[in-house]
């Protein structure tokens, strides 16, 4: 039985790996129209609220945009065409995510530059720190102690 343990474990691992690969390469089911509408609504800013998407908001303006998205999907327009439709009216402002992928790198670059500057600043400060003076010789310390005792007396 012990001799079979390794092959069984290997077979189980291979089967598990195969299932993972299968799950990764299996084509996803196409989204339904409602899912597509929800995704587009998630990407659009509600025009008359603060920091809410069209999908999340209950305002009449957001509801009108949701209706428009569903109608346009029913007419066969693609999500990109629908996004472009709203950008043509509201400008890029209507998009919750910046249209340029470059914009996503700006915060990361700012953090990297900031960390670099801080590290440089700290290293420089440590190098130029004032050196600690060596302890005075024993004779001087004894002399100081004697003088303090005389003052206290």
């Amino acid at each position: 039985m012990r001799r079979l343990a390794l092959p069984i474990a290997m077979a189980a691992l291979l089967a598990l790996g195969g299932l993972v690969v299968l799950e990764l390469v299996r084509p996803a089911a196409p989204p339904t129209r409602a899912e597509q509408a929800r995704r587009i609504g998630d990407e659009l800013r509600c025009p008359d609220c603060q920091a809410l998407s069209v999908a999340e908001s209950e305002t009449a303006a957001a509801a009108a945009i949701r209706r428009q998205i569903i109608e346009q999907l029913a007419d066969g327009r693609s999500p990109d065409q629908i996004r472009a439709y709203f950008v043509a009216r509201y400008g890029d402002w209507i998009l919750l995510a910046p249209p340029s992928p470059f914009a996503w790198w700006i915060p990361a670059a700012a953090v990297l530059v900031g960390t670099g500057v801080l590290a440089w600043w700290l290293r420089r400060g440590r190098r130029s720190a004032v050196p600690v003076s060596p302890a005075p010789p024993r004779r001087t310390r004894d002399q100081i102690r004697d003088e303090v005792e005389q003052l206290d007396a």
Binding site: P47, D48, A60, A61, A64, I65, Q68, F86, R89, Y90
Partner: peptide, 13 residues
């Protein structure tokens, strides 16, 4: 009533 004119003009409020 359907808010279409507001959408076409990109009205924010």
């Amino acid at each position: 009533s359907d808010g279409q004119i507001s959408i076409d003009y990109g009205v924010t409020g």
